[in-house]
Computed example of a mutant assay.
Amino acid sequence: MNFQTSAMAAGNSGLTRPPLKVPVTHQHIFTILQTLIAEGRVPRSDRPLRILDIGCGDGRLINSLQSLFTRHMPELQVEICGFDIGEHGFKDSSQLSGTLELLTENHPGIDWSNRVRLISDGDPWGYEAGSFDLAVSNQVIEHVEDLQHFLVNLRETLAPGGQSVHVFPLSQCMQEAHCLVPFSHWIKDYNYRVAWIALLSRLGIGRYRVDRKLLGHDTVARHAEETAKFIECWTTYRSFGEIARMAGNLSMATSYHFTKNLLPTKLRQMMGRKPARKYRRWTPFGIEWLSYLFVRSMTSATLVISPLRYDIGERIAKEKAYRAHREQHEAMREAAE
C-alpha cells in the first residue's frame, strides 16, 4: 500500500465535507504523522498501521486521530490503541468506561475494549516488543516522574524504525500549562510559589475563577495552596537537553523539528483555513533554532523520539577488511620494488 497515494485519494475524492473540529494539538499530531508517512519514515507491513496513544485519558486524541485518518487517509488501515495509569485519579475505572463510551459512540464497529486499557503506575506497559509503528502523547511527559521507565517501555513497544510524537511543555515554557499562572513552575521555593499564585490570582491571571467552581477553591488562599501542591506533586518539567541525554543513553534519537509548526497550525485554525496536508521538513538551521527557542517559551514543544539501531559488528568487519586489503596492497608494492 502506498501511504502517500492514500492521503491524496481522500483529497481528490470530489466530495465536499464539513471540516472536522478537533483541538489544535490533535490536528498538529495528525499532520506530523501524515508527514512521517509521506516521507517513508514509518515501517510498512501487510498488517494495519498500529498507533499507541500513551496516557490516552478520556480518549479524545484517539477519537480525533481515528476521525482524521478515516477522513483524509481512508485507504490506509489503522489500528489505534491507548492506555492510561489507573492510579492517576481513576481508581474506580470510571475514566475507562467514559472513554469506551465516547469511542464506541463515534466509531462503532470497533471493539474498543480490546484497544484501551488501564495499567498500574510503574508497571510495564504490557505490549509485545515491536507492537506499534507509531506512538503519540499529548500533554503527558510533564507528568511522568520516572522518564527512564517511560523511555525504556517506549523503545520496547515501537517496531524497528518506529517513531513517536510527543506534545508537552518543556521547563523553559513561561506559562504553567495547568494553572495558567506564568513562571509558577519556575519558583522552587514552595512558600514563594504559593504567594506568587495568590498574587496573580487576585489580579485575575490564572484559573482561579474556573477552579473556584470546578474544584471548590472557595478562596484565593486555598486555590494558591492547592495549585502549588499540584505543581509540586504531579508535574516534572524538563529541558530538551535533559530528555535528549536520557534518550541518547538508550540509543534513541530526539528531535524538536516540528515544534515550529504548532503556532502556524493554531493560526490556520483561527483563520478558518484548512490544515496543512504535511509540514515542510526543513528550514534554514538558524531560523529553525530561533523558532524553537521562541515557541518552547510560549507554548508546548513537540519532540519526535525514535529508537536507533546500529550494527557495530558490520562496521568493525568492514574496517578490518579494509585494513587487511591495504596491508596486502602495501606488501605487494614492496615486493615489486
Rank of each mutant, 00 (worst) to 15 (best):
L214K: 13
D53G: 05
T227Q: 14
L250Q: 06
F150L: 10
S131P: 06
L103D: 09
V167N: 02
L170N: 02
G57A: 10
R117I: 03
Y310W: 11
Q4C: 03
G55V: 00
L303M: 11
R155G: 04
D53N: 08
G241Q: 10
K213Q: 13
R115W: 08
D311L: 01
A324D: 15
R277Q: 07
L61T: 10
S64Q: 04
D211H: 10
V167P: 00
R273E: 02
H217R: 13
D211W: 09
L147E: 06
N106L: 14
S67Y: 06
H72F: 11
K213C: 08
C81P: 03
T70G: 04
R207I: 01
I141L: 14
S306F: 08
V181C: 05
S171G: 03
N261T: 15
R71A: 08
G130M: 10
K318R: 12
K320F: 01
E128G: 07
Q77G: 01
L214T: 07
I316F: 06
G286W: 15
N261W: 13
D46E: 14
Q27G: 10
H107I: 11
S164V: 06
E337L: 09
W282F: 05
E334H: 02
Q269D: 08
V220D: 11
A9Y: 09
V295I: 11
L263W: 11
P307T: 06
L96H: 10
E145N: 15
E39H: 01
S13F: 01
I197K: 04
I29Y: 01
Q328G: 13
E142Q: 11
S297K: 15
V136R: 02
G40S: 02
S137Y: 06
A135D: 01
H325G: 08
S131C: 12
V181N: 05
V220Q: 09
H185Y: 03
T219A: 09
P43T: 08
D111N: 13
V140D: 00
E101W: 12
F168L: 07
A129T: 13
D189F: 06
M174V: 13
S164C: 04
L52Q: 01
E75T: 08
A228I: 12
D189S: 10
T219I: 09
H107Y: 08
R207M: 11
C81R: 15
H143N: 03
H257P: 00
A301Q: 00
V24Q: 06
T283K: 14
L151P: 00
P108N: 02
T302V: 08
S67W: 05
T236M: 10
E79H: 09
Q163L: 04
R309P: 00
H72I: 04
L200R: 13
F150P: 00
K188M: 12
P124V: 09
R315H: 06
S255D: 04
H257S: 02
V116N: 02
Y208R: 07
W125F: 04
Q66G: 02
D111T: 10
Y190I: 13
V210R: 14
R155A: 07
L15Q: 10
K188G: 12
